[in-house]
């Protein structure tokens, strides 16, 4: 029956079963391919993957770096700066658009239009304009994240009932207090959710920018070893990306629960 509840045990067992099935299928495919060609690295065996992991975590004799360390810090810094700046900018602009009709009339149409352009298609344009330094990666992330995030923060402000804003004024609030003590705390859970949902896309924009122009970082490394068909290196990188995405996403979900215990995603208003 649709939406009929299942037990926790059943739920967990089904999730584990899917992961196990993928791992078994992978093992079988890798084994079959290696019957033909023992040196195959497109579907590496578990032993080859382990060797790959060892290789990226030990000091490389030619490049004099540990690949995973150097790439993580390069990509991590770009992500932190690019995503952080995008979030701060879209928060300020989004709240301003939600609160002031003039700001909204000025910016919202332009942002909506920008949001329709596929960000990865613009990467080449950004590269031509700002070169391939840190600015390039920041713009690549911001171009994709900022318009969408600013728009959803603006919509979150719209969801604050007029009644509560009017009531704040009857309680003696100044304009700054209406924003700082009434609107911002009430949109916070929705903002955290919106940020969380943009982490995935932000990684897409950053990695595709790195594929295009970088001499360090996840995108660069994946391209370099992908060209050599060395999936024993590429797969651990993909796994690291997945873990990073999951951890950051879970962290934002956790912050929302901790910071906004009052928030009821299904029940609107009070």
């Amino acid at each position: 029956m649709i939406r009929a509840p299942i037990s926790d045990r059943q739920r967990i067992a089904l999730g584990v079963a899917a992961v196990a099935a993928i791992l078994v299928a992978y093992t079988v495919v890798a084994h079959v391919r290696h019957l033909d060609n023992a040196a195959d690295r497109i579907v590496p065996t578990w032993t080859q993957l382990w060797a790959g992991i060892v290789r990226i975590t030990t000091l490389d004799p030619d490049d004099h770096v540990r690949y995973i360390v150097a790439d993580s810090s390069a990509t991590g810094l770009r992500f932190l700066l690019g995503f952080g700046i995008s979030v701060i900018a879209s928060f300020v602009i989004g709240v301003a658009m939600g609160c002031f009709r003039r700001v909204r009339a000025l910016l919202l149409p332009a942002l909506s239009a920008l949001a329709r352009i596929p960000p990865t298609a613009v990467t080449a344009v950004i590269m031509a304009m700002v070169g391939t330094g840190m600015t390039f990666f920041q713009f690549a992330i911001a171009f994709g994240v900022f318009p969408i995030l600013a728009e959803s923060i603006c919509l979150a402000v719209d969801d604050v009932p007029d009644e509560l804003i009017q009531k704040s004024y009857t309680l003696g609030a100044s304009q700054g207090e209406v924003i700082g003590n009434v609107i911002v705390p009430q949109i916070l859970p929705k903002v955290l959710d919106a940020i969380r949902l943009q982490i995935g896309p932000a990684l897409v924009y950053l990695i595709s920018a790195e594929l295009l122009a970088a001499d360090m970082g996840f995108g660069y490394r994946i391209r370099r070893f992908g060209r050599l068909a060395q999936m024993d290196i590429v797969f651990p990188y993909l796994a690291a990306l997945a873990v990073f995405g999951l951890v950051v996403t879970a962290a934002f979900a956790w912050i929302r629960v901790k910071r906004c215990p009052w928030y009821q995603p299904t029940k609107e208003g009070a």
Partner: peptide, 16 residues
């Protein structure tokens, strides 16, 4: 004005 209070039927309290 802070001299005129209001109680609405809905949205009467700050949820946060």
């Amino acid at each position: 004005s802070r001299n005129r209070g209001i109680v609405y039927q809905h949205y009467s309290l700050f949820p946060h």
